[in-house]
Structure formats: structure tokens, C-alpha cells
Amino acid sequence: MDVSKLNIYPLGDQAVTIQLSDQIDPSTNQQVVQIFHYLQNQSLKWITDIIPAYSSITIVYDLASLPSPSTFSSRYEWIKSILIQNIESMNTTIMFGRQIKIPVCYDLSVGPDLIELSQHCKLSIEEVIYKHTQQSYTVYMIGFLPGFPYMASIDPSIQMNRKAEPRQKVPKGSVGIAGAQTGIYPLDSPGGWQIIGQTPMNLFNLSTPNPCLLAPGDSVEFYAISLDDFLKIKSIENT
């Protein structure tokens, strides 16, 4: 991979961020996901966390475990050179994330912002639901809460900014819109996204070794379900 355009900077004294671009676009994010998997497979033992984001990736390292860097001014500079070497030697391949279909109930009782959003977008509620379920979204990153997927890009005609005042409690499973992004709250949490529905699926499951349903690089499609089906699936998911 071409490393000349990478912007690499310290995120404090125990982490380094590699920024690939300052745009949100699928090809940059695919490179981020590739670097993520590549570095994970290298199992460099001083790395404690690798955090992919929209257009950057951050490597957290254990400073105490690093040897003295004889030819570098700091351990940071040494790590930076190792990371550049790794990324340079990485073969870029086309990757296919998993395709995941997620049921969403767009009933007003679980989509408290549906009316406001449809008025804001000058569309009927049916049109908003149709547009939200019409395409597939890329999971760009997981952040904010355990298992919270940042997905994009939604149809420009149903985009709306976050609420001016976040809600104190957004229920678990809520599906929201923030600008061009759509996301799902895996847990009850305060939050400012425009909530248009709720999925009965668990996005985050404490008792499994892989606690999160989604990962960066996945493709997600939503399909509408009735309130009855929502309640049925929810009761099965939570037993």
C-alpha cells in the first residue's frame, strides 16, 4: 500500500493515529479495515488495541514493554517506522464483509422521531421507511458504546442532524439517524440521534466470546417488521 499520503501523529504518549484521509468514503474505510486485519494478524506483542475509525486507525501500545530505541529519538518514532513498514508491505485485496439483514420495527411507539423527521424531510412516514430499508449500508466503525455501529450513507432525502438536546435515555435497539449516518444503540444510553425505529436483535451480548453482532466492513440491510413480530422476536432474543 502507498504510504506517502498517510498522515501519522501521536495520540498522546501511548498511541499513534494513522489518518488516511479527511473524508468519509468507502474506499478509504476499506483500507482502514484492511490495515486493521493485517495488524491484528501480525500479533505485534506491544500493541494493546487497534481502533479503526471512518478514515483513520489508532494503535495503542504498551510503552513499558518496548526496548530502548537505539536509532530513533523516541519509542514513538520507532513504532511509527515499524507501522509504515508493515503497511507498505501489505497487499491490498478486495475484501467482502458479511451481509447482515436486520429487522426494524418502524412503529411510532418505538420510533419517537419518525413524525418530526418526516416533516423535516417533507416525506410521508412510509416514504422514510421505504428509503431507509431500500439500500445497504457499510459499517464504517464501532464506537461510542459497546457494539454501536456507525453506518453510512443514508439517502440524502432522509438525512437530519442530531437533536439539539440529547435524550436522557434512548432504549436499547433504537435505530437512529445523524446526518448521513445511521446507527443502532446496543444498550440503553443517553443519545442525540433521531430515533426512527427499534430492532429486536441484540447487537451486544455479554455472555458470548464475540460480544458484538457487527464489525467494520460488514454490509447491513434493514427490513421492516410489524410491532407484533418485533415483540415476538424480542422475547426470543432475550431468553
Partner: peptide
């Protein structure tokens, strides 16, 4: 800004 990683002390 586009969201990216943060750390303790940021």
C-alpha cells in the same frame, strides 16, 4: 470533524 479514536488524557 470525522470521528476517530480518543484516549485517556485526551
Amino acid at each position: 470533524m470525522i470521528s476517530s479514536a480518543v484516549t485517556k488524557g485526551t
